[in-house]
Design a protein around this nucleic acid. Structure first.
Lengths: 214, 214
DNA sequence: TTGCATAATTTTACAGTGTTAATTTACACT
DNA sequence: AGTGTAAATTAACACTGTAAAATTATGCAA
C-alpha cells in the first residue's frame, strides 16, 4: 500500500471495480448485488470501494457510462461501413439492435427508467451524449444527400425513439405474441423511409396545416 | 376479527393495500418503500400483508396490474369519441401521452424493464393484454376504412413501440436537448400517416422487394 | 355463560443491506 | 529506527424482507 495512491492506481481500481460491477449488475440488477458481494469478488473489504466511489449509486452511474461508451463505439463502428448514407443508416440501425440483443442487461441498465437522471454524474451525461450524437449523425447525412426531407434533429430523435421503443418492448417481453422482431423493425424502417421521402409537397416536419377541404 | 375472512373482506384489504402501495411505489419506487412503511400507513403490523399477498413482489404485480387497467380504461374511453377512424386514432394517441405524463410514475412502474415478466402473475398478464388490445384496435379500424394499408397487427405493434419509445425517452430525461415533445409526436404521426398511406404500389408491410431499377 | 378450537394478527427473531466511525495496517520520510 | 498518516479493515448502526413463535379475538358447542 503506497502512502499516496497514484492517479493510475485509482483509475485501475475503479476500472476493475466497474468491470465486476457491470457483469453482476447486468446479471441480477443493481439492487440484486450487494457491496459485500462485489468486495468479495474484488478480494477487498466491503468498505474499500468507498475510497474510490462516493456510494453505490456512483458505481452504478460509472457502470452505465461505460455501457453507453461501448454502445456508442459499436454505433460509430457501424457508421464507418462504406456506402451511401442509406447504407450507413441501415448499418447503424442494425448495430443498435445487435447491441441491444447481445447485451440486453447492459441495455436495460442504460435506459432503466427508475434510475435517476444523469444530472448528478457528468461522466454518464458525457457518455449518453456521445451515443446520442452518433445516433443522430447518420440522419443528418440522409437529409444532406437528399434521401430524406425534414429537420434532421427532429427526425433523428423520432427514429431513435421508435427503435428504442421496439427494443424495450421486446426486452420487456411485451411483444410476446407479436410477429417476429425483424418484421417489425423492417416495417418501421419502411414506414419512415416512405414517410420522410422528399416529395413535391411540404416537408413532413413542417407544422401541421389546416386542410383546405375534407 | 371474524373467524373466517369473507371474500369481500379479503378483497377490501387487498384493494386498500394496493391503493397505498401504488401511491408510495410511484413516488419513490418499489425498492424505496418498505413493508413497515406500508404497514404503518395501513395501521397494521408489518407482517399482516403477508396474509393477503405472497410477498412484496406480488404486491408490486397487483399494483402494476391496477395501473395497466386504469391505462387501458383511459385508452378505451378515448376510442369512444365520435368521428372516423382517423379521429379515434388521434384521440387514442393523445390519451396515451396524456396518461403517461399525468402519471409518469405509474407509467414507469408499468413498463419498468427491471421487473420480472408477467409470467408469474396472471392478473398482470390480463391487464397488460387488455391495454395492448385497445392500443391495437384503432389501427385495425384505420386499415378497415382504407385510411392505411398493411397488416393491422404489425402496424399496431410498430405504432405502439414508437410512441412508447418517445414517451420513455422523455421520462428518462434523454430528450433534454430535443425540440418539444409535441413536435416530435406530431412528426412521428405524420411520418406514419404518409408511410402507411395506401398507394398504387405494394403495401408497406409486404416483404421488401428488389427494386426494378435504381 | 363459559370454554375451546383456531383464524387473524402481532411480536420476535434472523440474515442481510448500505454506509459511517473507530481501529488497525503498512508505507514514505526524517 | 521511529513516526505521521493514507489506506484498508473491522465494528457498529439503522434498516430491509420475511419466517416462526406468541398472542389476540372470534364463532360455536356445552
Amino acid at each position: 500500500m503506497p502512502r499516496n495512491l497514484s492517479d493510475s492506481d485509482v483509475a485501475e481500481f475503479r476500472q476493475r471495480l466497474c468491470e465486476v460491477a457491470e457483469r453482476r449488475f447486468a446479471e441480477r440488477g443493481a439492487d440484486g448485488v450487494s457491496m459485500r458481494q462485489l468486495a468479495q469478488e474484488l478480494g477487498c473489504s466491503a468498505t474499500t470501494p468507498y475510497r474510490y466511489f462516493a456510494d453505490k449509486d456512483a458505481i452504478l452511474a460509472a457502470v452505465r457510462a461505460a455501457a453507453f461508451d461501448r454502445f456508442a463505439a459499436a454505433l460509430e463502428a457501424a457508421r464507418r461501413v462504406k456506402g451511401d448514407a442509406r447504407a450507413q443508416s441501415r448499418a447503424v440501425g442494425e448495430a443498435y439492435v445487435r447491441f441491444a440483443f447481445a447485451e440486453p442487461n447492459a441495455y436495460r441498465l442504460m435506459f432503466d427508467l427508475t434510475q435517476p437522471g444523469e444530472a448528478r454524474y457528468p461522466e454518464l451525461a458525457r457518455a449518453t451524449a456521445r451515443a446520442r450524437l452518433t445516433m443522430q449523425a447518420h440522419v443528418k447525412a440522409l437529409v444532406a444527400e437528399g434521401i430524406q426531407a425534414g429537420d434532421p434533429e427532429v427526425l433523428g430523435y423520432v427514429y431513435w425513439a421508435a427503435l428504442h421503443g421496439l427494443v424495450v418492448l421486446q426486452l420487456a417481453g411485451k411483444l410476446g405474441g407479436a410477429p417476429d422482431f425483424k418484421l417489425l423493425h423492417d416495417t418501421m424502417n419502411r414506414l419512415f423511409a416512405r414517410g420522410a421521402a422528399p416529395q413535391a409537397d411540404a416537408a413532413v416536419t413542417a407544422r401541421p396545416q389546416r386542410k383546405a377541404a375534407r
